[in-house]
Design a protein around this nucleic acid. Sequence first.
RNA 1: GGCGCUAUCGUCUAGGGGUUAGGACGUGAGAUUCUCAAUCUUAAAACACGGGUUCGAUUCCCGUUAGCGCUACCA
Length: 538
Amino acid sequence: MNTKIPRVRFAPSPTGLLHVGNARTALYNWLVARRAGGQFILRIEDTDLERSEARHEAQLIEDLHWLGLDWNEGPGQLGEPDKGTHGPYRQSDRLAIYAEHTERLLTEGKAYRCFCTPEDLEVERTEAAAEHRTQIYSGRCRALDPATIAKNIADGKPFAVRLKIEDHPLRFHDLVRGPVEFAAESVSDPVLVRSASGFSAGIPVYNYVVTIDDALMQITHVIRGDDHISNTPKQVAIYQAFGWPVPEFAHLSTILGSDRERLSKRHGATSISTFRQMGYLPEAMFNYLALLGWGAEDGKTETFTHDELIKAFSIERVTPSPAIFDFDKLNWLNRHYLKQADPERIAKLAERQFCNHRPDIFPLWSGSELYTAEALAFLASQDPPIHLNVPSLELIAQRKAWFANLLALFFPKVDFLAQLPAKAAFIFAVDLVSARANEENIAVLAVDSARTVLSELASRVRTHNGHVTPEAFKEWMNEIKDATGIKGKELFYPVRIALTGFHSGPDFDKIIPLIENGATLGLSIPSVRDRINQFVGV
RNA sequence: GGCGCUAUCGUCUAGGGGUUAGGACGUGAGAUUCUCAAUCUUAAAACACGGGUUCGAUUCCCGUUAGCGCUACCA
């Protein structure tokens, strides 16, 4: 067991969006560091020059921050210097370091030059396959005499650098899985530095550079995906060749989709930024990811704040088996945190979701917040009058209050904020076409009582002046009930269809003020009167 | 093919040589409401299979099966 204060790292490649699986790896690393007062280090693995992009790195960092993760050491952004003293933290800035280390291995005889051609290797591979053996390198360049080596180099023969693996089983300790051992004959001398022609000549391979980076950055616990298990014996051999202490490893299981295949876009959202755009809260994502492959010691607790999770987490309790990503449970957690969140914060996030749907009225504070109603009136009274087409401060405040009511009504109905505009759409406009096309609605409206109710209501609306208050509306409903004897669904359904386009939905005393106030706040929302009239065809 | 990892309700998991195998999500039912959502109550739901070890195995060991990963001079 490694009892040192942990130094852990998250080492993503900036080749795309941050996948939830990687985010979970980052989270577990962060948790281990925070729990023990250790350091969490961010390292960017950008040696794949063709696919790595600076914008991806920036996005990655933003997503990590959004999730609530921070790091003690990492690459500087926008020309800022690196944070930490074990840098540089981008692999592309570390190439010279790798070269030095290769030199050292070569002079110490721990590594050797391999002049085998791809064709030579291909032969070995086919032979091994034919004999149902693990394909391993024969090591034929291991013992080349110095004269031959010198001659080959002088002849300009390309060579790779290989590590000499001592002939003993390679084992390592895994904090999640316990001891893991690979038979000596299953691991052959791995290539450290490529020979291949052109572009990639002399570029060290991944397994080599991570090991050097981890060792130099004094990483004590390597926590990463289980797709690296098979790489680990090679890496252990590299540590040993340099005489470096071998860290603890923890290999996290893969996150699968509902069909038990690796979670991919096919299964829906997979990147942190997508979830963010859909209106998931970071605390929900944080909590869900923690629960995916780990459970609290009491076997019961499901919701955690950051601090609670830091206290409760331990890497040893992480499950080794693969986990299926459960959108339902994430949704449940998101609803949970939505209910707890500060309404103003939710309002800001929610408003953004509405912008695409009703750009004419959202954001509610569009224009300016600088003008009071008084100021606007003053400007309009000037000669010549100045008309600013912006809502006044007072109006904005009223709209915000109105929006808060709208949210309070609809957000218990959604899993994530992006569902809000569709759920609340009928407040902004009634879709008469689909309302009339809906089978259940047709059945409701086909009954005589429905016609009676609606005409009764229409006549009251017609003779009513000014706003319809929820109280007045309720009064009407009671009158209609008493006058016609129609009650319950027969009474409520047709009215709701006329008002909203749906036979079921929120209570009238919630909907009515929303509609009526909305109609007066310059939000181009049809009033109760408009709706009833339009529906009965006046 | 080889090597490796994994296996408790549909899903995430707790547990661990003798338990009514616990919790959560989801699902069903009920309460509430005109209805929907929310809320509350409640129900159904699991130790992959076969051998050992043992007085006793879901738990320990071995094998089978299945799934996944690696099998590159990719990262």
